[in-house]
Amino acid sequence: MRRRAELPGASELFRTTAAPAAGPPARPGPEEPRGDARSRSGSGRRKHDAKITVYVSDEELLALEQARLALRAEHGIAVDRGRVVREGVAMLLADLDARGADSALVRGLRQEEGE
């Protein structure tokens, strides 16, 4: 009887799971448009290169978690909170690109300033 457990080697643990990218994505120059509403979408499930920290209230975190659970229970979509947030950001930015001053983002921020 062996006393040591057989563990996988480093090559099995740290294998590549996706094809490497050709390079960093090109950023639009001053003469290029930022993109239109149709080109924006959440980045989905992939490795992300940048990270931000966002502070939310307990109520906002609870609402986000309830939305995530509702997506799973009612719509069969299993996602994490980060993916929900990325999709929401993409939707807001697409709306801003398409509608400008009439976008939900501008209206919401203006309303918040008025409080």
Rank of each mutant, 00 (worst) to 15 (best):
A101F: 03
V89N: 02
L64V: 05
H48F: 02
D97W: 05
Q66M: 03
V85F: 13
A70L: 04
A78E: 13
E59V: 07
R99A: 02
A63K: 09
S57I: 11
F14P: 04
P24H: 11
A5H: 12
A21T: 08
G114C: 12
A78F: 13
A50F: 01
T17K: 06
E65F: 07
E32C: 07
R46Y: 00
G42D: 00
G9P: 14
L61F: 10
G76V: 07
G29L: 09
T16D: 12
F14I: 09
A104S: 13
P20E: 03
R38D: 09
A18H: 08
E31N: 13
P24E: 14
R81G: 14
F14K: 00
P28G: 00
D102K: 07
V56T: 06
R72L: 08
D97K: 02
L7R: 04
S103L: 01
G82M: 03
G9D: 10
G88M: 11
D49H: 07
R40T: 15
A50N: 00
A73D: 08
A70Q: 00
D58C: 06
A22H: 08
M1T: 07
D36E: 08
A98R: 14
A37P: 12
A26T: 11
K51A: 12
A22E: 13
L61S: 10
R15L: 05
D49A: 10
D58N: 12
K51E: 15
R107E: 05
G23R: 06
G44T: 00
V84A: 07
A18K: 08
R15C: 09
P30D: 12
K51W: 07
A104I: 05
P8K: 03
P20H: 04
R2G: 12
G114H: 08
E31A: 10
I77S: 15
L105H: 01
E87W: 13
T53K: 12
S39G: 07
R4W: 14
D80I: 10
G88P: 03
Y55E: 04
A37G: 10
D80M: 11
D49V: 06
E32D: 13
V79D: 15
A37I: 07
H75W: 15
L7A: 06
Q111Y: 11
A18L: 10
S103P: 02
A78P: 03
E113K: 01
R68H: 01
L69F: 10
R107H: 06
S41T: 08
A90L: 04
I77L: 14
R46I: 01
S11G: 09
H48E: 02
D80L: 11
G100A: 00
L64P: 14
G29M: 04
P25F: 07
D97R: 03
T53W: 04
E112W: 02
R15P: 13
D95H: 06
L62P: 15
E60K: 09
P33T: 13
V89Q: 02
V89D: 00
R86W: 15
R34H: 14
R34P: 11
P20W: 03
A37N: 06
V79E: 15
S57G: 05
